[in-house]
């Protein structure tokens, strides 16, 4: 049986107590939300925090406040709750992203905050201590080399959060609270392009909430590629959001997940002012998908993932213009299973 190492455990009742402990313990402490990412990593000794600070008792982290024009989601709410929430439907990309994380069981405990902070993944790293020892470890933990690119000075582990690309496409913000300080930053700014230091969150900061803006006029979606429709992390995802006036695009955002160490925002300015016709979609899909530069450290070959990146951007935009998913090919039909979940 795989088992956790030892740790000190705190389960405070308030945000103030949480950030006080974080301030005292520094990087030795890890926040424990649902534990669905942290616990396996602890069992494999990828992470061995001396202190766990559980957030489950902090009531304000479990609140959802929303009306038609904004939402404030506590970071401790479960992914299952987001997926099932009728009032969050206007922020469709987020609902779809949350509904496709891992499995129903994991969504029942996994939290929004946890998914935003989910450790970057790499199949040289997501292995047991003994396995990693057999390759003499890697840069991300206990070793010196990045085996994905042995000459590289940096770690290329892959951002594997489903919710972050969706939230970036929705232009959401996170509320970071530390002792005596609160800062609100766009979700995009939560991430660094580095497999190890992938979070711009300071160790003493808690993601208290996610803020969503006015969805009026916006349509959004999230397409996830994985081999199985359960369990698997994204190996490519596309979050897309467009704001239309009449049939013209006035604002648009397309974000890739799982193609780099952080979510990658594509330049889709070519869409602005245009109709979402096949030609403009293909043009944007072509240029945007060039940003997707996956490496050989997840499932599927990288060449194929690049090919799908283009199909995904094009499919997601066609869905947003109103095409029926059933007409958008087989990979679109995989997204449509979501109807069952919602």
């Amino acid at each position: 049986m795989m088992r956790c190492p030892e740790f000190r455990y705190f389960a405070p009742d308030t945000v103030e107590e949480v950030v006080k402990i974080l301030a005292e313990e520094g990087p030795r402490a890890s926040l424990l939300g649902g534990g669905t990412d942290l616990v396996p990593n602890m069992k494999r000794r990828q992470q061995t925090p001396a202190v766990l600070v559980a957030t489950r008792r902090v009531k304000e982290l479990h609140n959802v406040e929303n009306d038609a024009t904004s939402a404030r989601l506590g970071s401790g709410i479960t992914l299952a709750r987001i997926a099932a929430s009728p009032t969050l439907r206007p922020w469709s990309a987020l609902v779809r992203a949350a509904a496709q994380v891992a499995t129903p069981h994991i969504r029942n405990t996994g939290t929004l905050g946890g998914n935003l902070c989910v450790d970057t993944r790499c199949n040289y790293y997501d292995q047991s201590y003994e396995w990693r020892k057999a390759i003499d470890f890697c840069m991300k933990k206990d070793g010196g080399v990045c085996w994905v690119a042995p000459g590289s000075p940096r770690c290329w582990a892959v951002s594997s959060t489903d919710c972050a690309p969706a939230l970036i496409a929705l232009d959401a913000q996170v509320e970071l609270v530390s002792k005596g300080q609160t800062r609100i930053v766009p979700v995009a700014q939560l991430y660094n392009d580095d497999g190890i230091e992938y979070l711009a969150r300071r160790p003493d900061e808690l993601i208290a909430s996610v803020r969503l803006g006015d969805p009026t006029g916006w349509r959004s979606t999230y397409w996830k590629l994985r081999r199985r429709e359960a369990f698997d992390f994204p190996v490519l995802s596309v979050a897309a959001a467009v704001k239309l006036e009449g049939d013209r695009v006035v604002e648009a955002r397309v974000v890739f997940g799982a193609v780099a160490s952080r979510p990658v925002v594509a330049d889709v300015s070519a869409l602005i002012g245009n109709r979402l016709d096949d030609a403009s979609i293909e043009r944007v899909a072509d240029s945007a998908s060039k940003l997707a530069k996956p490496l050989d450290n997840t499932d599927f070959t990288l060449g194929w993932r690049k090919r799908v990146a283009k199909a995904y951007v094009s499919g997601a935009l066609k869905e947003l213009r109103g095409d029926d998913l059933e007409t958008l090919g087989l990979l679109a039909r995989r997204q449509s299973m979501l109807r069952v979940l919602s």
Binding site: N123, P150, A230
Partner: peptide, 27 residues
Amino acid sequence: RLPPKLSGALVHKFPSMLEYKSPSTME
């Protein structure tokens, strides 16, 4: 197999239930 210049390692690529893919109910 890691680059032999750097390492003699020959390891199972993914000895786990997550990465050794077996069909779920959805497939």
